[in-house]
Design a protein around this nucleic acid. Structure first.
Lengths: 150, 150
DNA sequence: CGGTTTGGTTTTATAATGAAACCGAAGCGA
DNA sequence: TCGCTTCGGTTTCATTATAAAACCAAACCG
């Protein structure tokens, strides 16, 4: 693959996010973490991911500050992987992906998991809005670029 | 790599979305498409992606119904790649990624591109809400699973 | 204690990616 | 209209990422 290009220097915040969580497994691990999983074996079983790859991804996610490795029990060796505050800020990303999938990737009558508020059971969703609260679509928005250094 | 696992059958809508746009380049292409790019050469130059890979990704995105290949001019050969209505529904995903990047992947004073409403210049953002409009965080939400067939 | 589970690491095979060369067709200036 | 250039790929080849399986030490469990 010859050194996959890093997007760290990109001025686009989406690109930088993808640099951190844009690979094939990372977001699935994060999804499971949101779902309450913490242990290596849980992720491995849930995802069917090769163990060496899982090791690598967990390491990367910890380095990125999205997960933290918390020592379990009193000993020193075994750890739990928990979402950090930063990791929890990926929640809207997960919900957005879920919403897209629900709309376009399921047959109308097909079974699917649902995301609801714990207390009330109400459905959870999200919309893009202006800072004063009006919902808008892609055509009403523009990206203001940073001037290129040249 | 031995046949990368498909998530098509997964009951989790996020997983299915990732199956479609979860690879390294697809969302970057979509980002550029939201930014107005339509031509092969534009994507290629903007992303620095290898041409064979770009060919493949565009093909996949067209097959998934996210982009459509519109013949250019009157001739038959050359095409423009445009977001379909389905593709435009990825807008919240892009905004969510952008918002995460803005919060955590830039130094406080660092330059970044911004997403604003075209008419007013107001910032664009998004929050997760219940269907009755209350903003909630990850801890207030639960995933209701589909019962496993076993 | 002794066996089993957990959480990895190592090894090896193969698929995905990237870079570069190549190529036909469309555009374009003279 | 001729010839040159750009565009939009395809092909080939080298390299990397991923997967599967074997292996292993430490923790846990009776």
């Amino acid at each position: 693959m010859v050194a996959r290009k890093s997007l760290k220097g990109d001025y686009c915040p989406s690109a930088r996010s993808l640099d951190v969580i844009g690979d094939w497994w990372s977001l699935l691990i994060v999804r499971d973490a949101f779902d309450g999983m913490t242990r290596f074996g849980e992720f491995q079983k849930s995802l069917g991911i090769a163990k060496n790859i899982l090791t690598d991804r967990l390491k990367t996610l910890v380095q990125s500050g999205i997960l933290e490795a918390v020592p379990i029990g009193d000993g020193n060796a075994r750890v739990e992987y928990r979402l950090t505050a930063v990791g929890k800020d990926l929640f809207p990303v997960m919900v957005a992906l879920r919403q897209f999938g629900e709309r376009h990737l399921f047959a109308p009558d097909e079974e699917r998991s649902r995301l609801v508020e714990r207390e009330t059971g109400l459905s959870v969703r999200l919309d893009v809005r202006t800072e004063d609260g009006r919902a808008i679509g892609p055509d009403q928005a523009v990206i203001l670029k940073v001037p290129e250094p040249d």
